[in-house]
Design a protein around this nucleic acid. Structure first.
Lengths: 198, 198, 198, 198
DNA sequence: CATGAATGAGCGTTCATTCAT
DNA sequence: AATGAATGAACGCTCATTCAT
């Protein structure tokens, strides 16, 4: 009794995922009822449970999937560059653009960490990608010999913080517009050779 | 039937606040039911409402009050120092120790910004304090002429990110132990005079 | 785990309405919890909210809907008669029988006026119907030239009072049995021609 | 710690009763919390329970007490007159004025019948007073030989209905202004001698 | 398979009642 | 006697989950 060909159809699963993602980003996962997701996807509530055993699974699978995908993208971006500085700069630019282009998804992944990160043990992970590049950079003498995790916080922290500023209205510029400035500043922070900062 | 001669514990209000703070930090405010707070505080549900008119008020009063207090502390710390570098280093150290000493409170304030920052319009604000020091530092020529908000993200981001790493078990060291390393790195990132980074 | 093959009873909505009506009549709407209605209807609490958005809506829809229906019935009864006296007598008889036949509904509508009448602004309204017949009767010279509202109180008051006596056990006769006596007495009260009272 | 001589004092009991009565009339007993009564009376909540074992007792004692007092007044009014017609007219006038002068109390008695009349078994009772006068009147041949309770409904019903009209804004005149009209109409309804109606 | 009406545990909140002071 | 902070059962309502169709 729903409809014979209501939406352009497409796989139920994909419609559910897209609707859920959008709503989670807009309102937070906890504040999004399952019936609301079903309605947004043009699907019956019961159908949600054919693809996900519970709401928790929907949230965490959505989180983990996109988190891993982001890690893969980031890894490809890094591999496409030669040299620690170029790798880090490319990653910084990529993350900034990711926030600009995938605002909903990025907010869901990076700002709603309580629900998602708890118990995430996926194989690939954006943080690990960055940390590995840094470890290699330190070994190569490109980065000063500080604790790799501190250096990672130095790289990721400013970007996430800028995104947070943007999420709460403190910053109005697209992150892409300040990506190079951020990248340069980050490099100045950790580069072994200080002249490289200029 | 609760306690025989009197609550052996301290003031109800304080027990409520402490219990709420801990649970909010652990699970997020949205995911913490009032009955759970009451149970953790060893108090009846109704008693929560003698001190706070609603859950929302409990969350936002806890947030706003401590957020403003943190800002004041931070301002005093900054004023006690001479020179941009010393001010920033002292602030970085203070925030790191704040995380170590007031783990619950700091996590609640700095990691759960969704619930708290929405509609926070307090007069003092930790971010503003840092941003002002940076603006003065730029004017004084101590900091390179980058956008103050970017520099602020550069200062706060790494610390918050390190705290996040610690909250999710990635980092095990107390933040105080790496505070100087963080401060030095931050300074290297934004200092006008690159030799100052060493 | 409730029923094996299906509710053996009728439509949920009707069961809810009937249960609510009975309880409202017996104890008053304010003193009737939603869970009590659900239990009486043999339905889960949540199901109440599929049909009514709130308790207030349940009360007022039940009230308004039946109040308007009663007004329509009363109007039809009145139109079927010729002459003021016959119209009033028919209405009196109808209301008396209404109390006898729809005891719960009539008590709810006519005795619990607090919750229901507040803000009721329906188009049709039993009081208005009676008042209009009386106004016409006065204009026709059938009824003495008293204030129409006083005459209306004269017509409705005794019936409602008799119903109240019955509700509190003072009167045991069905109202239908004394309807003609009441109608005759009412007519004696307001008729222009006193011989008409006999 | 409350106050040394806050209000002009006076017996606690009386202050409680007065405050409760006013609030019950204004908002209904069910919607009036005990703490609100205590605050209005300038008394601690606990003190309410020194005088009344429960809220229910407070409501019903207040109801019964005033109900009985009204009955006594009505009886005195009736006794002060000679003849059935004069007795009924005086009672009608008294009840009308009672509504005008003691609006709160009258509303409480009239509209809170669920809470009050349920199980009221007081010795004196306004209805009984009226019914007795009518029974005597029938025996004396002043009133037509109809069922006394029907005649009682005939006398009380119109007045209560007029008061209800007034409570809900349909009638704006003070009841005292239409008391004689009501009394005359009532008499016309039940008088044995129809010429008496004029 | 997909549906969506039905469920009921659990939420935030209120308030009649108690009891140490 | 009087107090009022503390209690906790019960309220109106939500929503993750199930299952007959």
């Amino acid at each position: 009794m729903k409809a014979l060909s209501h939406p352009p159809e497409g796989e139920l699963r994909e419609r559910i995922d897209a609707a859920a993602l959008h709503l989670f980003a807009e309102r937070g996962a906890a504040a999004t009822p399952m019936p609301m997701i079903a309605a947004a996807a043009g699907v019956a509530v019961g159908s949600l449970y054919r693809y996900y055993a519970s709401k928790e699974e929907l949230v965490s699978r959505l989180y983990a999937g996109n988190y891993a995908a982001l890690a893969q993208h980031l890894d490809r971006v890094q591999q496409a560059q030669e040299g620690t500085r170029a790798k880090l700069a490319a990653m910084a630019l990529f993350i900034c653009r990711y926030f600009d282009d995938e605002w909903d998804l990025a907010r869901f992944l990076l700002l709603e960490q309580h629900a998602g990160l708890r118990g995430y043990a996926g194989p690939a992970n954006p943080i690990d990608i960055v940390e590995r590049v840094i470890a290699v950079g330190i070994a190569a003498g490109d980065i000063r010999p500080i604790a790799p995790l501190v250096a990672t916080a130095m790289v990721i922290g400013p970007i996430v913080q800028a995104a947070t500023f943007r999420a709460y209205g403190r910053l109005r510029t697209p992150l892409g517009d300040i990506a190079e400035q951020i990248a340069a500043t980050i490099w100045a922070a950790i580069a072994a050779d200080q002249r490289g900062a200029q």
